[in-house]
Design a protein around this nucleic acid. Structure first.
Length: 122
DNA sequence: TGGTTGACGTTAA
DNA sequence: GTTAACGCCAACC
């Protein structure tokens, strides 16, 4: 199977620390009992396409509610112990987890874009 | 300096 | 449901 080109949107145009800051801010904005995705967090931080960077920030972790960030479609992307812990943490917050997926319909947090035009998101 | 990796995403088969 | 390919970006080695 071969893909051609989904059409890229934007490139990261900020210093590493700014990126980290923006991402952390977006992550901390997710309230307890709610969850979001890497892609959504990246977009909320104004870094569309930098989903991977979100993962990097989470991994390096500081004091972020990492358990609230999931893969596209509400899927838990972790493996092993971490996955178990994430599931437990989410469950403790009241987030229903089915298998390795979360009921996004009921728990996805809709960001209010920081600076961009406040239109609806995702 | 340069190639590899990864807590990613999307489209396609 | 799964597997494959491609795009993307910074951390790692």
């Amino acid at each position: 199977v071969k893909r051609k080109k989904p059409a890229r949107k934007s490139k990261i145009a900020a210093s590493p620390q700014e990126v980290r800051l923006l991402i952390e801010r977006a992550i901390r904005a997710i309230p307890q009992g709610k969850v979001s995705t890497y892609g959504a967090v990246a977009r909320a931080a104004g870094l569309a396409g930098a989903a991977r960077q979100v993962a990097v920030v989470l991994r390096r972790g500081f004091d972020l509610p990492w358990q609230r960030v999931l893969g596209a479609g509400g899927q838990i992307k972790l493996t092993g112990d971490s996955a178990i812990e994430q599931r437990l943490r989410l469950d403790a917050e009241g987030v229903r987890v089915r298998g390795r997926r979360v009921d996004m319909k009921a728990h996805e947090y809709k960001f209010r874009l920081p600076k961009r035009k406040s239109s609806r998101q995702k």
